[in-house]
Design a protein around this nucleic acid. Structure first.
Length: 956
RNA sequence: GGGCGCGUAGCUCAGCGGAAGAGCACCUCCUUGACAUGGAGGGGGUCACAGGUUCGAUCCCUGUCGCGCCCACCA
């Protein structure tokens, strides 16, 4: 017996366990060894994260595809796993340490800190996986991977080493986006621009050889800046070569205020005469554009900030170079250690005192911020590792151009191309601890043809400068040592770093007659996206030549959000093509954001975040999934309100009750029942409609039109099966025993079975439960719905059944409409006027049904409609409701007049087309034919309505 | 500055070359034996605006207005 109500919370956990115990989601099930594989790799969520609505959408869509293809017989691999999410996870653990008042990361040291992160991972890493299971995700959990697993780490090292050997990874000293809070470099993509109201300071730089006089513009040049504090690092003033105002000054020098440095006025096209004063200060160490100008003109790069973005002038060789002592300089040096924003104020104040500030204007600008830390990013000159993205992008661009990978919707390709075609070097090193440590080792530099070694103190940022050391990039420590031995020709040991301690070790060893060279590993880790970029093949066991790589790569579909096209999709394309020589996926389905009921983006700060698990608790996973699927129209955000989920919970209830109805009426599945053999038109009709719905749903899922697929399923289940088939079948099911009753029972059960299958990808729990419950009656069935066959219903199209049942439905609807309109509560008779034999017998066959559903007392035939009756035109047939005394004749005349007008306007519109020679000549034949049919239908209708109107007039 | 997208029923959105759709909301009626988490019926739209292409435009093209988002730049 099916329970009276469906309780998702009681069913879902139990069903999921059954799937897992059966290994239903396992890839490579033996019986599918010959089947075509279907592969999706999950966008790996942060290992310590928890499920948010974006995940719910993303994974619902993947699950729909996986369950659909699994039912179509494919060998499905939905590869799950999690991402170590370097910065995010490290931040979480550091925050935790702070909350618990424990020693911070630096105090506890790298090793101890990493141990703590691993502990945290062990503790919370299972959360998101369990939450995905609650959503119903049919991943092959036996293959779960983590980006820092040994295997995946090996893949990372191999990729790094090979790209380094191919010259596609290199170390470079250039400006990076430096996060002064997290103390690491970040990539361009991790920088967000924030619109800010700032100021434009117009500063006077005195010209060399003139006595500065604020009243005399010929003694200075004005530069405008939004960041006055960087002036300490200025190394030139640039003007446009064609700018007449400044032509005479090019080649002269200015004396940098507060510093006393002599810097040149140079001509460079970067300078825009329209902006500011037309002269621009050049600070190569603190501005990306200035850096390029500096390179063109061979300007020194003077870094005036520490890693914490504080003024750093002491022990600063670049700053000190070529400076003459002065009282100004002394005061400037005293700013050492001052925060950058405090320094801005201090510097402006001092300049103002000296009359060096011409004016200050309000100025809107966007300021770069770190997306994680939310602090202002500093362009900072450091050594970092880069990927030559430009080179690697070439095949990735070509692959999309050639259609080897398709974006869905297609317009994302434009976004992909425009980014890929203007791609910048990808900074992959991060000054963090949690992540894949870069597989590069450094050792003392060889000088004098290898006879002597020199050891330099480490760079405070990245451990060592390329130019000062020997570098060994290797997949393992052993290999690095081997390389070092070869280079040095001496014993090699791993040491902790190029610091004082290490030098002491050397000295101690040397004094004991030992002779060895120490090498130390790069302390930085790789950008998290570096390992994610390998996900489609590293999860399959690469770099080993596993059968999985052969079988499941390239994957079929990637389902992801538009926000990580650059971060992730583009990089997977590059890495996949480079290392597998094939695209990582055929289709990339890009979905959009889930917003709240008012259309606002969900965010913690706004407090409008809807927790998917809360929704699952309240309405069930199926309701949430169906809501997301119904909303997933290509290229559109999804608004999710509680009302929507409730509606779809109601849909689940509707389905449940339909199943109860079927069971209640003894409609069990019948072994070997073939709907093609049905004799009763109603049953032939529902078979026809089921086939139609199955085809629609199949086509829509294939096209990633999830919303259309869900809508088609919804419509069919509710508006076709429940509203009409169930209602129309009642007289048969409750009527006398016999062939028709048996057939109807069998058909009702068959159609319900098909419905359960069609809905399974969307609503896996309730359908699996119904599959099990309906298995209790009729022929035995032991398998799971998740592994059963997707409906493939050919040869069930039946236009005759459609004509018959369609007429019945429309007749019932028309009568109900009149009843409601005229407020008739009693049963009324129905007369078929001038009906053919065929219609009469059809009416006879369905008399009981019509009587019951339209509340008709009796059905009879007549040559013409009785006097004073309401006449309905249903599919060209006249049905009359003799209602003398009941109806308001005037109202009825008005109703008919309106319908007549409608018929006439229909005719007029069609005639306008048909009388147009151009239309008849140029429109496709079938369209013309269709219009002719419309004409015929409408004029038939018109005649009948006119006749009804006449009869009414006669009736007074 | 470049790119992408959106303006369709009160609200939220489908549809995107051949007679305007759904859900919610609203109004009327219904405790009929699957379901009140329900059933029946109904009102409501010159498909942003202006041109153009076409036999035919909500749908294609161009422009205008309004609204998002992405990228770049910002002295």
């Amino acid at each position: 017996m099916i329970d009276k109500t469906y309780q998702p919370s009681e069913v879902e956990g139990r069903i999921y366990k059954i799937w897992e115990q059966a290994g239903a989601f396992r890839a490579g099930r033996p019986e599918r060894a010959q089947a075509k594989p279907y592969t999706i790799v999950i966008p790996p969520p942060n290992v310590t994260g928890s499920l948010h609505m974006g995940h719910a959408l993303n994974n619902t869509l993947q699950d729909i595809l996986c369950r659909f293809e699994r039912m179509r017989g494919r060998d499905v691999l939905w590869q799950p796993g999690t991402d170590h999410a370097g910065i995010a996870t490290q931040m979480v653990v550091e925050r935790q340490l702070a909350e618990r008042k424990e020693p911070g990361r630096r105090e506890m040291g790298r090793e101890a800190f990493l141990k703590r992160v691993w502990e945290w991972k062990a503790e919370s890493g299972g959360t998101i996986v369990n939450q995905l299971k609650r959503l119903g995700a049919s991943c092959d959990w036996s293959r779960e991977r983590f980006t820092m697993d040994e295997g995946l780490s090996r893949a990372v090292r191999k990729v790094f080493v090979e790209l380094y050997r191919d010259g596609l990874i290199y170390k470079d000293k250039r400006l990076v986006n430096w996060d002064p809070k997290l103390l690491t470099a970040i990539s361009d993509l991790e920088v967000v621009q924030v619109e800010t109201k700032g100021h434009l300071w117009h500063l006077r730089y005195p010209l060399e050889g003139k006595t500065f006089n604020p009243e005399d513009p010929s003694t200075f040049i004005v530069v405008a800046t939004t960041r006055p504090e960087t002036m300490l690092g200025d190394t030139a003033v640039a003007v446009h070569p064609d700018d007449e105002r400044y032509k005479a000054l090019v080649g002269k020098n200015v004396i940098l205020p507060l510093v006393g440095r002599k810097i040149p006025i140079i001509a460079d096209e970067y300078s825009d005469p329209e902006k500011g004063s037309g002269a621009v200060k050049i600070t190569p160490a603190h501005d990306f554009n200035d850096f390029e100008v500096g390179k063109r003109h061979n300007l020194p790069q003077i870094n005036i900030l520490s890693v914490e973005a504080k003024i750093a002038l002491k022990d600063n060789a670049e700053f000190a170079a070529g400076l003459a002592p002065s009282s100004d300089l002394e005061a400037t040096l005293a700013m050492h250690g001052m925060d950058r924003f405090a320094a801005r104020k201090a510097i402006v104040a001092r300049l103002e005192e000296k009359g060096l500030v011409e004016k200050i204007e309000p100025h809107g600008l966007s300021v770069p911020h770190g997306d994680r830390s939310n602090v202002v990013i500093e362009p900072f000159l450091t050594d970092q590792w880069y990927v030559n993205a430009k080179k690697m992008a070439e095949p990735a661009i070509a692959a999309v151009r050639e259609g080897k990978t398709n974006f869905v919707p297609k317009n994302w390709e434009a976004t992909y191309f425009s980014w890929m075609e203007n791609i910048q070097p990808w900074c992959i090193s991060r000054q963090l601890w949690w992540g894949h440590q870069i597989p590069a080792w450094y050792g003392p530099q060889i000088t004098d043809e290898g006879k002597n070694l020199r050891i330099y103190p480490g760079d405070p940022v990245s451990g060592a400068r390329t130019s000062d050391v020997e570098m060994f990039v290797a997949p393992s420590e052993e290999d690095a040592i081997r390389q070092a031995i070869e280079r040095y020709g001496r014993t090699v040991r791993i040491v902790s770093g190029p610091n004082e301690q290490m030098r002491n070790i050397f000295r101690a060893a040397a004094s004991q007659g030992e002779d060895f060279v120490g090498i130390w590993r790069d302390e930085d880790v790789l950008d998290t996206w570096f390992s994610s970029a390998l996900w489609p093949f590293s999860t399959l066991g690469w770099p080993d030549e596993t059968p999985e790589v052969k079988r499941y790569y390239p994957t079929d579909t990637l389902v992801t959000g538009f926000d990580i096209i650059f971060f992730w999709v583009a990089r997977m394309m590059m890495m996949g093509l480079h290392f597998q020589k094939e695209v990582p996926f055929r289709d990339v389905y890009i979905h959009r954001l889930v917003r709240d009921a008012t259309g606002a983006k969900m965010s913690k700060s706004k407090g409008n975040v809807v927790d998917p698990l809360g929704v699952i608790d309240d309405f069930g996973a199926d309701a949430l999934r169906f809501t997301l699927a119904r909303g997933a129209a290509q290229g559109h955000d999804i608004r999710l309100g509680p009302q929507d989920v409730e509606n779809n919970r109601n849909f689940a209830t509707k389905l449940w009750n339909a199943a109860r109805f079927v069971e209640f009426n003894g409609a069990a599945r019948v072994e070997g029942f073939d709907p093609k053999s049905a004799k009763v038109a109603l049953n032939r009709w529902i078979a026809h409609e089921t086939a139609k719905a199955a085809a629609e749903i199949t086509k829509a899922i294939e096209a990633y039109a999830f919303n259309e697929a869900a809508a088609a399923a919804y419509r069919f289940v509710w508006n076709v099966y429940c509203d009409w088939y169930v209602e129309l079948s009642k007289p048969l099911l409750t009527g006398p025993d016999g062939a028709a009753k048996d057939e109807t029972r069998a058909t009702a059960a068959w159609a319900l079975d098909e419905i359960i299958k069609l809905l399974h990808p969307f609503m896996p729990f309730i359908t699996e439960e119904l599959w099990a419950v309906t298995a209790e009656q009729g022929p035995k069935r032991s398998g799971l719905l998740a592994l059963s066959d997707w409906p493939k219903l050919d040869g069930l199209t039946d236009d005759k059944a459609e004509a018959e049942i369609g007429w019945v439905i429309e007749l019932i609807t028309a009568v109900r409409s009149i009843r409601a309109e005229m407020n008739i509560s009693v049963n009324i008779p129905l007369v078929l006027a001038g009906a053919s034999k065929e219609i009469e017998s059809r009416a006879e066959r369905w008399a009981e049904f019509i009587k019951r559903l339209a509340r008709v007392s009796e059905i009879s035939s007549a040559v013409s409609a009785p006097q004073g009756s309401v006449q309905l035109i249903v599919r060209g047939e006249v049905a009359a409701l003799p209602l003398i005394g009941v109806i308001d004749l005037d109202a009825e005349r008005a109703r008919l007049a309106k319908e007549l007008a409608k018929a006439e306007s229909d005719i007029a519109r069609v005639d306008a087309k048909l009388n147009n020679a151009n239309f008849v000549a140029r429109a496709p034949e079938e369209v013309v034919e269709e219009e002719k049919e419309k004409r015929e239908e409408a004029s038939g209708r018109k005649v009948k309505i006119a006749a009804a109107l006449d009869a009414l007039k006669a009736a007074k």
